[in-house]
Simulated scan of single mutants.
Amino acid sequence: MLTRRSMMLASIAAGVTMNSSNAFSKAAQPATAVNFDVPPGACDCHTHIHGDPEKFPFYAGRVYTPELASPEEMSALHKALKIERVVIVTPSIYGPDNSSTLFGMTARGATARGVAVIDDKTSESELDAMQKAGFRGIRLNLATGGVNDPNVGRQRFSAAVERMKARGWHVQLFTSLAMITAIKELVAASPVPVVFDHFGGAEAALGVGQPGFADLVELVKSGKAYVKVSGAYRASKRGPDYEDAAPLAQALIAANAERIVWGTDWPHPDSVTPAGKKISDVTPLFQIDDGRLLNQLAVWAPDAAVRKRILVDNPARLYGFA
């Protein structure tokens, strides 16, 4: 278990300065052992690093401020889960600054890949450098930013695809089923892979018949989109096992297991600043048992060969692991 002392020493070794007791991360670690054989080369396809804000300043336009989460804590998480590879995604709190993600990737080495956030000011030379460092896609976060206008979503998605098509990176979207329906034909025609975060924004309580879910399933079935069966606690409120998310996961896997990847969404940020709090006030991380979360994959995909596709083969293809 990481102690305050071990974390401080690791941070000093990494060149990170933490200024007060409030700066120490409280990211969750697994409390439950994994109950199936995790195949070699398994990948957690959705994580974030929240670095020391003195070194990695938060974006002025963010909508929440999380507790910190270090590369050392992430490594401890994956050691417990027997996960070898990781994809680190730049969260909205950094805007188009990918430094904290790169910090985490560098700490992890060859077993890490990154997904960046960019804007119009991001140059091709910067993208070249990111590609060399292991970035393989860009993320459009339409959910946290509250983008609900289909016209805005279509424009942003089209611009992202145009930017990425020569490079061959994928475009990842955190959005809603309604937006997926609105951009469905654009996704189907995309020359680059498209990846939807967190069950495509589906709500477990509404089941597989909810509006837009059939469009998501169709895109997966046709091979035109990947879906991350990640952050089940975002789709479901029925913890700790999120049983009502199972029909969503099973429908997506049945549609096309070669287009499904899995992720924790560690360190589980709460992207909603509580009423009465300022955006600059620290919002605690969700305390999710990732061992229990990973065990649900064996419920969703009882066949070990299918789990290997989800955990190993699909991420290797999508993110370019050797």
Rank of each mutant, 00 (worst) to 15 (best):
I12R: 06
I12L: 06
V16E: 01
V16G: 02
S20Q: 10
S25K: 00
A27K: 03
A33S: 14
F36S: 06
V38R: 08
G41N: 07
D44R: 13
F56G: 02
F58L: 11
A60Q: 09
A60K: 12
G61F: 00
R62L: 09
S70M: 08
E73Q: 12
S75L: 05
A80H: 09
V86R: 04
V89W: 02
V89Q: 04
G95Q: 06
P96N: 14
D97S: 14
S100L: 00
F103P: 01
G104I: 04
R108G: 01
G114A: 07
V115K: 12
T122Y: 03
S123E: 03
S123N: 08
S125N: 05
L127K: 01
D128G: 09
M130H: 03
K132R: 12
A133W: 00
R136G: 02
R136T: 13
I138H: 12
L142W: 02
T144D: 13
G145F: 09
G145C: 07
N151P: 00
G153S: 14
E162S: 14
G168W: 10
W169A: 05
V171N: 05
V171R: 00
Q172I: 08
S176M: 11
M179D: 13
K184E: 08
V187Q: 07
V187F: 00
A189R: 02
S190D: 10
V195C: 05
E203R: 10
G207R: 09
G212N: 12
F213N: 11
D215R: 09
D215F: 10
E218Q: 10
L219G: 01
V220M: 02
S222Y: 02
S222A: 15
Y226V: 01
V227M: 06
Y233I: 08
R234S: 08
R234V: 10
S236E: 11
A246G: 03
I253H: 02
A255L: 02
P269Y: 15
T273A: 02
T273D: 04
P274R: 10
S280H: 11
V282M: 05
V282R: 01
T283G: 15
P284R: 04
F286L: 13
G291W: 13
R292I: 10
L294C: 07
L294Y: 14
A305E: 12
A305W: 04
V306K: 04
I310Y: 00
L311E: 11
L311A: 07
L311N: 12
P315H: 08
F321H: 09
